[in-house]
Structure formats: C-alpha cells, structure tokens
Design a protein around this nucleic acid. Structure first.
Length: 302
RNA sequence: GGUGCCAUAGCUCAGUUGGUAGAGCAACGGACUGAAAAUCCGUGUGUCCCUAGUUCGAUUCUUGGUGGCACCA
C-alpha cells in the first residue's frame, strides 16, 4: 500500500561536507529520528576515524544504525535495505516524515531504488574461493565463471576480482547464472523520497577534510586504530583512516606519511562519492549554509 | 672570487647521435546490484631556465646570463 503522505528525506553528500551537523537541525525540525546511511559508522567503536556522531549528538536526536554492529559482523547494502524498510514501516506508523542521512552511495540506492534478490553467500564458500584466488590467481575463477555464466563473463570487468569472485559465488550457491538474478529493476517504494545533496567548492571541501584528519589525530585516532589493529583483516577495518595507520604499525611507512595518505584517500573518496551522486538527477543540491532554502524546499515537498 | 656539475610535468627524475618529449608518485575523469570508506578502469596536464648564435630545423650543439649544488680559495 502506498502512503502518499509519507516521505523519506535523504540528506546526502561527500565525506566532510557537513551532513551530521545539518542532519541534527533538520531532524529536530521534522520531529524525526535519524537513519544513518553509513557503511562504517554502523560498526561499534570506530568513533573517531569515521567521524561518527558524538555522544552528545546521539542524545540530542535518536539515531539508527550507529554503532550497532560488531567489527567482525558481516553486513551489506542488501541487509541495510531490508533493515531500513522494516524500520520505516514501523516509524511511518507514527510519523509522516523520516530523515535518513549518510554518504554510502550503494546503501542509499539500496533503500531508494532497491536491490535484486540474491541470497547472502555462505561463509565457507566465500572462504574457499578466496583461498583459491590467493593460491592460483584469478584465471581459474574466471574460467569457471565463463562456463557457468558466459553472459556476465562478457559484461564484467575481468580485472576486478571482487566482482568476478562474487559472480561465481552466486552461480555456485544458487545453481543459476548470476546474470539471470540481476534484473536491475527499480523497486517502487510506498513513500515519497526527497533527496537533498550537500555540496561545497572543491577547495573548501578539501580544506575541511584535511583539517578534520588533523583533528581526528588530536582526538586519539592513533590509539583507536592501534586498538583495532588485531581486526585489520576484517572488512570493517578496510576503511580510510585505519588502513593507512595499520601500514604505519606494520612499519612500512612513517606516521606523517600515513596521515597524509588518510587525507589523500579521504579526498579521493569524496570525489568518488560525487561521481556517483552526479548521475542521480533526482538530487536537489545545496551548500550547507543554505539551511533556510533547504527547509523551505522540505516544507513544500513533504 | 675560481673550477666543476645541474636546470625537462605539481614533485623525483629519464630522454632526444638535432626533427618540440616520457616514467613513477601526485592530480584529474569514469565504472559500480550482498565486503562499496570496498574493488576496478582510464587520462600527460610542459615557454624542456633566459638570451644570442650555428642550422632547413635547437629542449638537445656553441656563446653569454640567471639560479641551485659541490669542491677550492
């Protein structure tokens, strides 16, 4: 059923643009909790390095998907879609407008556009394939994929091991070609979606990112990273701000170099986010200072 | 002050037996359907320090500058 009076407001933008601060104000104004849409802030304890909302901010507005998962947990865009859809169903019973904010592009799309129904891969199967990949390289895996799903084999970037391996995983797991399960169909949602994009001039954004990294270091990012060094093989720690410091701990680079790399990788990440967002013509863009304009738009559209 | 070496992309440097140049890093563009802050792909952006010669043609050879480094005073 469609609730035409229900709206999901999505506040998005590149890392460091100023989403968190504005999201609190908007949430209060909309009388909404905040659904965080961040593939790293959802892990417990990655507080400094992911610039997660502070204790104080979390008290100010109820947040979902902040520090809810263990560093060793497996999580994905598809699970996020499922979790958020269930949550929205519940929240919309008492509220007409819900705010979601974050910069994880695929998570946003999973909620707004949906994602195909493909089973989560069995842990052992994934392990086996990665063992094979480490021992024999990608070639044998490519060949298997070519046999099981020649259609996808011809589409996929054959150098991108994650895509190749995942396609084969799905084939082996389901007994069906991966390409058959990939419909790419957009799911209809029973609520309106309003996307607000936050944007700054590149120089301004880069300055903020660089400064924020310095502040993270002052706040104790080095100690935070050292604490989770034992977890470095987990995906949750394959994250800008941690992986560079792990290299320093490994002794493969100097601390100053690692810090510069964090800044650089954050800047690169912000560009990748913008590359993705630019394709989405449904986003209305604003500078974070244009708060009144944003509120005006929201009052008109929700 | 003298002698020697160097000056080429944002940086570190190749190179052109004279036909206006290319690597790494950086920078920038892009792809993206269950690990996405992941993973992968693409692009050279240049007064070859300045000046005057030689030459059909000079970033390359020669003269004179300028700047840097080293050694000798």
């Amino acid at each position: 059923m469609t609730h035409i009076n229900k709206s999901l407001v999505v506040l998005l933008g590149p890392t460091g643009v100023g989403k968190t601060e504005l999201s609190l104000e908007l949430a209060e104004r909309l009388n909404s909790p905040i659904i965080s849409c961040d593939s790293r802030q959802l892990y417990k304890d990655l507080t400094i390095g992911t610039a997660a909302p502070s204790e104080f901010q979390l008290q100010r507005v109820k947040h979902y998907f902040i520090a809810t998962h263990e560093l060793t947990d497996y999580y994905s865009a598809s699970q996020f879609e499922e979790d958020v859809m269930l949550l929205l169903e519940k929240l919309f019973k008492t509220k007409n407008t819900i705010l979601m904010t974050g910069g994880s592009m695929m998570y946003i799309d999973a909620v707004c556009k949906g994602i195909d129904e493909i089973p989560t891969i069995d842990e052992d199967l994934r392990k086996d394939l990665y063992n094979q990949y480490e021992k024999e390289g990608l070639e044998p895996i490519r060949n298997q994929l070519k046999m099981l799903d020649p259609v996808f084999y011809n589409q996929v970037d054959l150098k991108n091991y994650k895509r190749v391996i995942h396609a084969l995983e799905v084939c082996l797991m389901t007994g069906k070609p991966y390409s058959e399960l990939r419909t790419g169909k957009k799911k209809e949602r029973p609520f309106n979606i309003v996307k607000i994009g936050l944007q700054r001039d590149r120089e301004e954004l880069y300055d903020r990112i660089n400064l924020r990294v310095e502040e993270m270091m002052k706040s104790g990012l080095l100690e935070e990273a050292r604490r989770f060094y034992p977890f470095r093989r987990h995906n949750s720690l394959n994250t800008v701000g941690y992986k560079e410091l792990f290299q320093y701990f490994d002794g493969t680079c100097a601390l100053d170099f690692a810090i510069e790399k964090i800044k650089q990788n954050s800047r690169i990440y912000s560009r990748k986010q913008m590359t993705w967002f630019k394709k989405d013509t449904g986003i209305k863009w604003f500078h974070p200072d244009e708060k009144n304009k944003i509120i005006e738009i929201l009052e008109k559209s929700v």
